[in-house]
Write a protein that binds this DNA or RNA. Structure first.
Length: 521
DNA sequence: TGAAATGTTGGGGCG
DNA sequence: ACGCCCCAACATTTC
């Protein structure tokens, strides 16, 4: 007896002609991962093609991302983003089914229970996920299921953008020049389906059972600041384009001004795609004529793209320096120094303000990230990987590709790395980029009464000034962990040592002698 | 997507 | 009036 599907009317639209009535309606799983949206979702569109029914599935499998499983801040975001996605699906007639990993077993079980014959997902590019997804795809196919991965989370697939030698770009500027030349190839975003033909509801897990929200109340400041989910993402982009994009080029480095897009967590979880960002930003700003701001903003989208392409080509860089010379760098690991940095108690105001902003909101202004990272790596000489792990655990936008790129850049061991001699002075950076001192005052209330010039450098303030402001260094606020000038000199010397590896004293004379002899060997 | 050291210039005080 | 010195202010070089 044919399935009941035969009696259903054929779906309207062009699919009717491509898929004659005699083919039974099929069921597909859409495996949602870091693409928690319904707009511009190639896997979802592919699953719905031909009038098929859909099981929308999210699988919680943090162990499959180890050692870079999502941290607490990221899990907080994920929880709320899944709530939002489930709401969007429900409004279109579908449920979000939640399962626990291992992902392969969950997919097989849901396929069996739903009768799905195909699985669609949008690709990820992190090393562990590339390996996992490859195994899953071949296993599913061997079991007779159709498994399709789609491009949906980058502007360009990493293997399609190469330099003249056919290699992955290692320097941002030529990378972005090549990408810009091909931006017209990036198609328009796909529309969100108005309705989703859902397969019968599956017995999934309640979201709460994933225990993504923290027990301790450290997330108190998060909800006021963030709106996870697809609606929140598009609202954030719209607000940025309306209010801040025109001045972005000038204001993006100012932590005392809310002039950045703050889209990073939305992009990380795929609540909005870079293709949407490109299309919406270009159209809006073309109308507004804010060309400089647009270019500057899209350039940052380019950095995200660059990080993903690099990580895809050099998967070992999550743990290993890209520049092999740094494998034997003389770091000076010190748990006490690391912990003081993590807690925002270094005695350097801009660094401490940033680390506290991070802890309390799950985010830190990009300029401050560079300064805080530079201080940890260069002045304190703590291993960049320790800093990368802390950022990964505490950022709502924690992203393995961007985080790896940023830390290796700071440490000088990355592909397009800061030159070894480029060492930030956190006090000068503070004076230059927080001229109103609004950022410092917000995050360092214990110093709020310190008069103007000294807020950037309390350790240099006259005793009378400190006393009048009610600040006793070492009690209300820490003394600096290190002397800035001295630690800078030490870093310069050590980094220069990596640049020109310690040679045997005989090396230079030996070379001279050989050239002098001319014809030997 | 630096900072500090060093070099140069030019105005003004002053003998 | 002139030369000398001092030192901002700016430019260049070096790490």
């Amino acid at each position: 007896m044919p399935a009941a599907d035969h009696e259903r009317p054929a779906p309207a639209g062009p699919s009717r002609t491509r898929h004659p009535l005699r083919i039974p309606l099929h069921t597909s799983i859409v495996w949602f991962r870091r693409d928690l949206r319904l707009h511009d979702h190639p896997a979802l569109v592919a699953a719905l093609e031909g009038g098929g029914r859909v099981v929308a599935l999210y699988i919680h499998a943090p162990q499959e991302e180890a050692p870079w499983s999502p941290g607490g801040a990221s899990r907080w975001w994920l929880h709320h983003s899944l709530v939002a996605l489930a709401g969007e699906l429900r409004a279109r007639g579908a449920d979000l089914t939640i399962a626990r990993g291992p992902s392969l077993a969950a997919l097989q079980e849901v396929a069996r229970a739903s009768g799905a014959t195909a699985i669609h997902w949008n690709r990820s590019y992190e090393p562990a996920l590339v390996v996992r997804d490859g195994l899953i795809k071949s296993t599913l196919r061997a079991a007779g299921l159709a498994a399709h991965s789609h491009a949906g989370n980058l502007l360009f697939e990493p293997w399609t953008l190469k330099n003249g030698s056919g290699e992955t770009f290692r320097v941002f500027t030529p990378f972005w020049r090549a990408a810009q030349a091909r931006l017209t190839e990036v198609g328009p975003p796909l529309a969100a389906p108005a309705t989703i033909a859902a397969a019968p509801a599956m017995a999934g897990l309640p979201l709460e059972s994933l225990a993504l929200l923290p027990r301790a109340g450290w997330d108190a400041g998060f909800a006021a600041r963030w709106s996870p989910g697809e609606d929140g993402a598009r609202a954030r982009l719209a607000a940025f384009l309306a209010d801040d994009a025109a001045g972005y080029a000038e204001m993006r480095d100012r932590p005392d001004v809310a002039g950045t897009s703050r889209l990073s967590p939305h992009l990380h979880f795929g609540e909005i795609s870079p293709r949407q960002v490109l299309a919406i930003a270009s159209a809006t700003l073309e109308r507004a004529g804010a060309r400089r701001g647009t270019e500057s903003f899209l350039r940052e989208v380019g950095w995200r793209e660059f990080g993903h392409h690099l990580l895809y080509a050099f998967p070992h860089t999550t743990e290993q320096p890209m520049d092999p010379r740094y494998a034997r760098f003389p770091w000076r690991p010190d748990p006490g120094l690391l912990q003081a940095w993590q807690r925002g108690r270094t005695g350097i105001p801009l660094v401490d303000a940033g680390m506290r902003e991070l802890w309390q909101t799950g985010w830190m202004h990009n300029r401050v990230r560079m300064v805080a990272a530079s201080f940890l790596v260069k002045n304190l000489q703590q291993p960049w990987l320790d800093g990368a792990r802390w950022f990964h655990d505490t950022l709502v936008d924690a992203d393995l590709a961007s985080n790896t790129l940023g830390w290796q850049w700071t440490a000088g061991c990355g592909a397009d790395a800061a030159p070894y001699y480029r060492i930030f002075n956190p006090v000068l950076q503070s004076e230059r980029f927080d001229p109103t001192r609004g950022y410092l005052r917000r995050w360092l209330p214990e110093l709020a009464r310190l008069p103007d010039p000294w807020l950037h450098r309390p350790f240099a303030a006259p005793a009378a000034v400190l006393a009048a402001a009610g600040v006793e260094l070492g009690r209300h606020y820490p003394l600096p962990l290190v002397d800035l000038a001295g630690s800078r000199e030490r870093a310069l010397a050590d980094w220069q040592g990596i640049r020109t590896p310690a040679q045997a004293p005989a090396a230079a004379p030996a070379r001279r002698r050989r050239t002098g002899e001319g014809g030997d060997a």
